[in-house]
Design a protein around this nucleic acid. Structure first.
Lengths: 196, 196
DNA sequence: GTCATCATGTAAGCCGTTACATGATTGC
DNA sequence: GCAATCATGTAACGGCTTACATGATGAC
């Protein structure tokens, strides 16, 4: 989930971790907040995997030839590090080609996503082709419809007031979600028609 | 969360783990399923803490005096184990006095619960006194209202169609939740009036 | 007698959190 | 020069999942 959100935000802008956290909070809303303790390790992991990479953002590309001396090597390393560290030691990340592919993969993934992950996918679904987006919406709608049918069997009707009220409210909520998805699906279908 | 759900279900009936899992699935619905891998360790933890205890369910209370011999001790242990293990090696748990107190604590806990936990609390709130229940509903309503006001500031109005649709749908969902809570609150208040 | 189901548990691992440690930059 | 904020990371830990191991019981 965090990978999806990070790659999605970086698709728009190159950003450093701290700023990324703010954007993620905006994207995820009150649903969940990403903490530094998970963000930075995630960025490191994504970098190792080649999906994001630190980009240079101050122009000082001093050549750093390998000298063979330990001191020289260290200086070269420092220079290389400085290359990708900004004013406050910031490390600005950008999406690689493979990262963009990965984002696409994660968005299309047919596994049933939990509620939060689905919301994140919708927030980023402008990066999908129309048929892929349509499939995303339809899968979700079907999943919610399945939940509705699976549930509606109260155990012998012997429910207390609060539990019954909760279940009824749940049913209404899911129905609202389905209605919303129906709208989205209809809109996508209409646009597909137009395109032909 | 799992503690709350377990104690809440055991408040009604003594149950063994396997059956408990089924009831929990019913209580939590599609929200989340508890796996054995978390249920059994949780039960063991709650037993150590003295909130639940294995209850006898076949009548065979053979006296098991300590004999001093290893063999005797072992036999005594086996007898004691057998005492609380049912036909299929089932171990039936029941709520202790302290467990009931703990359940009450968890239900009243003023910390903001996440969405799932709140649903579980509502499902179990018949175990609360009316004023406590009222407080539970009001806290949740206020929290949702806070979310609504905190969010409604789109970043410069430059949102794409899908993100805007998502945010609007979210707003509607939260408003529906608030309306539902208002009903519950009103009902509790009416009953409180009656009681006087 | 064997297969499905019931029943309990352990182990490894993932994902995330909080708390901590560190240091640079800006505003006053 | 000092505090607030920006910025990056590490360490310890918690909770939950999947997969595995084990064995009893009942149906056929």
């Amino acid at each position: 989930m965090i990978d999806l959100a990070i790659l999605g935000v970086l698709k728009e802008h190159d950003l450093h971790g701290y700023e990324l956290k703010k954007r993620l909070a905006g994207l995820l809303g009150a649903r969940s907040t990403v903490s530094f303790g998970s963000l930075y390790p995630a960025l490191a992991r994504l970098e190792r995997a080649g999906f994001v990479k630190a980009v240079e953002h101050n122009t000082a590309p001093l050549p750093t030839p390998s000298s063979g001396s330990l001191v020289g090597e260290l200086a070269a390393f420092r220079a290389r590090v400085r290359e990708v560290r900004g004013s406050r030691g910031k490390k600005v990340y950008g999406l690689t080609e493979r990262g963009a592919q990965r984002l696409h993969e994660l968005l299309c993934d047919a596994d049933v996503a939990d509620d939060r992950e689905f919301a994140v996918r919708v927030a980023l679904c402008r990066h999908l082709e129309r048929p892929e987006r349509l499939a995303l919406f339809e899968r979700r709608r079907d999943e919610l419809a399945r939940r509705l049918t699976e549930r509606d069997e109260p155990q012998g009707g012997r429910l207390d007031t609060y539990l019954r009220s909760l279940l009824e409210h749940d049913t209404r909520s899911i129905s609202n979600d389905i209605a919303w998805l129906d709208e989205l699906v209809a809109a996508e279908r209409a646009h597909l028609q137009e395109d032909t």
